[in-house]
Nucleic acid binder design. Structure first.
Length: 872
RNA sequence: GCCGGAGUGGCGGAAUCGGCAGACGCACAGGUUUCAAAAACCUGCGAGGCAACUCAUGCGGGUUCAAGUCCCGCCUCCGGCACCA
């Protein structure tokens, strides 16, 4: 056979192996009950946050997390785990519908086309997904069970209808959830939003607040993410206290975290929307209060918070009685105000204001000249501050001793001398005994607004009948969307489904007329349980068999972006707990380990005014980048990839120029997975060269097709130095994969290849086979190809991870650093594990010129590391 | 404002438990090869200094024989929350 150039050619290798793996079902995960299922094998569930298949196709940000989970999946398979590594599509929702409207094509069509693109792109990257388990949330066979789960929630009393005001976004023609609105503007598109009352489905996630909080602790998530969820749930402990209102029967209930400051309550504040406002306002103040309430209603949340740092409010003319004081004690008569710094939806929508102990109340009291009774008697040594606090001239939010007058006239409560905890306790005990209040825990988290006025979402399995809400029987699920020509929002709050009259008007189980629910479910519905369906995706009798979820759950590794920190992750945890309570799954926390990847950024160039110049208008000039027309020197900055800046990198382009293995490797080599880091096209050839050098270790440049280096053609003994280097590399790569440090794992393989290249003809086949095994999780195509050319046993993707001989990880000799006064002065080589006196003797000899004429005061030996002499 | 995270060569980054700062890659420089270029390969590469050495991990202090790593006080950047009583 004629010799020819044997170059590393990803364009032929990669499609070949992708096809082979797919045709031979290499990455199929076996469920309990399947043929060849081995119950003794440990399981590993590696999950990516499934993508929203947008029309733009895959972005280089997607494969970052996907490569990480793929490395772990391939590694775990090699380590003998039964690995579940699935992929699917989060395919219902607003952007798909927006795009469909733009292109005037049915969202089912555009979504299917987008999914095809995503699938094709992902498949060119060689991910070891079990594609048999693929589904999209818009598949009727899937959302049938989303509807069924809604029914479970409803049956447990966790779904209710509400007319509470919700965020309405005129521009998007839809209502939005709290977390989709930022400072009164839509997260998507940044359009203005306002509050409007609409009939909505709401899920009682608040009922699970305590468990969602408590169960967070043992999870292997970053502390910052746990903190985000904790703060979102926002638990606070305190008390509810009832105040009498002069001249009214109604009592005013407030929530406070500082019941111990009740002696300092000098006014009350109601939220403008509070139910009692109208009733208690006196005629003299009615006009002012009405005006204020109206103005507050018209204000956006933005105006009420961000811009209006200045407190505003009006007096109602009414007075409350502080329950601690006797009916004739003038200190107990406190005015009731209305102010928008109190939020109606938190606590009871009313507060007792204690200006001496709360900065907001202090600010308000100062502005409106309300008395500020001092209630603390601090003795911190800062006499001036102590005096101001005692006099009520300064607010004190820290723990401080109570003033002597913090006592009831009957002596039943005496706060002086008590700690903060005991002070709270004393007041709460008294309130309970007096029937005036109780200890109370409040949460910031609100119930989950669970409906959208849109076409492209799961229909509710709900009928509105003359008797009220009726659930669609299981046998009639799924409730399919009507096939509508015109699915655009009508500009009215109701969903376009209202126009599908044939669909809306139906009959209930008794044959009486009924109307279908026209709201659809939000995007987060389908993503709240997809990890469960992956365990048993083809089940037509159940959403997921208990055997399958018991086996696979929890997810062992879940990788995705931080943007889902409070939305998706909280909703999924909630649904899992509900399904658990229904006895349908055993697991209570779906995601054991969660890892947030950083963002892939890009370079952009700024001109002198700080404006970003689009890539197309720049050019390189020597080491600099300048403006193509003006020639102005531009400053490089790191920012988000954006179409506007022209710095978006398309993974397809990288694959066609360098191959998928290079893309995967580069994304992992850029830096730690958790960090955000800029894409630098100049760095990509570096990892490509590494693959080429790896290839060259096996394949000569000119040879017969498929031939190896001649020294690899027969078996021979391993070179000890290379063998040692290889074992170290295996050990390092293994440890680095376990701790998700893929960048350093790749660096270790590069070191091995550099070393091996220098002594290439000393390598043997076994060493190269093992190197291919190491490389396989990272660059699976080239590794599989080399494995085949080296006549490895079977398929590399199914081969076991190479073993490390611990004996080969230790050296006979080690180099010690010799320091004098902490400064490195020499190095000596001593036997590994040498006794301290041996190390000292060697070090002393090496450092003699720095020790001469000095007194050694102390000698520190760190075995196998260094010797430090402290001299005088 | 509050809560997280980070700041190391020209660049991306490494240093896993307080023990030789700068692994690995990029860029750059010199060389080999080549008709030539590219590719590939080899060598060098924190700063200052001829050198011995000195200085260097955002800034200022501290603890320690020894600090990128621990402590205190600042600065800057990124992310989250933002009148939640």
């Amino acid at each position: 056979m004629a010799e020819q150039k044997q170059t590393y050619d990803p364009a032929t290798i990669e499609p070949k192996w992708q096809q082979f793996w797919r045709e031979h079902d290499v990455f199929r995960a076996k469920n309990p009950g399947d043929q060849d299922f081995d119950p003794k094998q440990p399981k590993f569930y590696a999950l990516d946050m499934f993508p929203y298949p947008s029309a733009a196709g895959l972005h280089v940000g997607h494969p970052e997390g996907y490569t990480a989970t793929d490395i772990v999946s391939r590694y775990k398979r090699a380590k003998g785990f039964n690995v579940l590594h699935p992929m699917g599509w989060d395919a219902f929702g607003l952007p798909a519908e927006q795009y469909a409207i733009q292109t005037n094509t049915h969202p089912a069509k555009t979504t299917a086309a987008n999914i095809d693109t995503f699938r094709r792109q992902l498949q060119t990257l060689g991910f070891s997904y079990d594609w048999n388990r693929e589904f999209g949330t818009c598949d009727p066979s899937y959302f049938r069970w989303t509807q069924w789960i809604f029914k479970q929630l409803h049956q447990r009393g966790l779904a209710y209808e509400s007319n509470a005001p919700v965020w309405w976004c005129e521009a998007l023609g839809t209502v939005l959830a709290n977390d989709e609105v930022i400072n009164g503007r839509s997260e998507r598109g940044d359009h203005p939003c306002e509050r409007r009352p609409l009939r909505q489905w709401v899920l009682k996630i608040t009922e699970y607040a305590e468990r969602l909080l408590r169960d967070l602790d043992p999870l292997d998530w970053s502390e910052s993410l746990k903190t985000m969820q904790r703060e979102w749930i926002g638990r606070s402990e305190g008390a509810e206290i009832d105040f009498d209102v002069e001249g009214h029967d109604a009592r005013l209930r407030v929530f406070t975290t500082r019941p111990d400051t009740l002696f300092g309550a000098s006014f009350m504040v109601l939220a403008p929307e509070h139910a009692l406002v109208a009733a208690i306002t006196t005629d003299a103040h009615r006009q002012a209060v009405d005006d204020y309430v109206k103005a507050a209603a018209a204000k956006s949340e933005l105006e009420r918070t961000d811009l209006a740092k200045d407190k505003s409010g009006v007096f109602t003319g009414a007075y409350a009685r502080n329950p601690l004081f006797a009916a004739d004690d003038p200190r107990g008569r406190i005015p009731i105000w209305v102010a928008d710094y109190v939020i109606v939806s938190y606590g009871t929508g009313a507060i007792m204001a204690v200006p001496a102990g709360d900065e907001r109340d202090f600010e308000f009291a100062q502005k409106f000249a309300i008395p500020i009774p001092g209630i603390f008697a601090p003795a911190t040594g800062d006499a001036e501050r102590d005096a101001r606090i005692a006099a009520g001239e300064q607010c004190c939010t820290d723990e401080a001793p109570y003033a002597a007058h913090c006592r009831t006239s009957d002596g039943k409560i005496v706060l002086a001398g008590k700690s903060l905890q005991d002070g709270k306790r004393a007041i709460i005990d008294w309130l309970v005994a007096a029937g005036r209040g109780e200890a109370k825990v409040t949460y910031k988290i609100r119930d989950w607004l669970f409906s959208r006025q849109r076409y492209w979402g799961e229909p509710f399995p709900v009928l509105h009948t003359e008797d009220g809400v009726a659930l669609v029987p299981d046998a009639e699920l799924p409730v399919l969307l009507p096939d509508m020509e015109d699915f655009k929002p009508g500009g009215q709050p109701e969903s376009p489904l209202i126009r599908a009259t044939d669909w809306v008007n139906t009959t209930d189980a008794k044959g009486r007329p009924a109307q279908r629910e026209i709201n659809t479910m939000p995007g987060a519905a389908g993503s709240s349980w997809y990890f469960l369906r992956f365990c048993d995706p083809h089940n037509t009798n159940e959403f997921c068999s208990k055997a399958a979820s018991d086996y696979w759950l929890p997810v062992d590794l879940y990788v995705g972006g931080t943007e889902h920190a409070v939305g998706h992750l909280l909703y999924s945890r909630f649904w899992t707990k509900v399904l658990h309570d229904q006895g349908l799954v055993t697991c209570v926390e779906p995601f054991h380990k969660l890892y947030n990847q950083g963002m892939i950024q890009a370079f952009a160039y700024q001109d002198g005014r700080g404006a970003i110049v689009p890539k197309a208008e720049t050019k390189e000039q020597g080491d600099d980048v300048v403006h193509a027309t003006t020639g102005e020197k531009l400053t490089p900055i790191v920012t988000k990839m954006s179409k506007r800046y022209g710095n978006v990198v398309n993974p397809d382009d990288v694959v066609s120029e360098y191959g998928a293995d290079t893309l995967r490797l580069y994304e992992m080599y850029m830096g730690p997975l958790a960090d955000s880091k800029p894409w630098n096209p100049k760095d990509v050839p570096g990892v490509y060269r590494f693959l080429q050098r790896s290839w060259r270790l096996c394949v000569p440049e000119f040879a017969e097709k498929g031939a190896l280096h001649e020294w690899l053609q027969q078996d021979r003994a391993a070179d000890p130095a290379l063998e040692k280097a290889l074992h170290r590399t295996i050990h390092k790569v293994e440890g680095d994969i376990e701790r998700m440090a893929f960048n350093t794992a790749i660096a270790a393989m590069m070191i091995f290849v550099n070393e091996a290249t220098k002594a290439m003809d000393k390598l043997n086949r076994s060493q190269l086979l093992r190197f291919a095994q190491l490389l396989q999780p990272f660059a699976p195509h080239v590794a599989e190809e080399l494995w085949q050319r080296l006549s490895g046993d079977g398929l590399l993707s199914r081969a076991a991870w190479p073993a490390v001989d611990p004996a080969l990880l230790v050296d006979d000799e080690v180099e010690l650093a010799v320091q004098v006064l902490g400064k490195l002065r020499a190095r000596v080589t001593v036997p590994n594990g040498a006794a301290n006196d041996v190390a000292l003797a060697a070090a002393r000899a090496a450092a003699v010129q720095w020790l001469d004429g000095k007194t050694v005061v102390k000698e520190i030996v760190v075995p196998n590391k260094l010797v430090n002499f402290v001299v005088k």
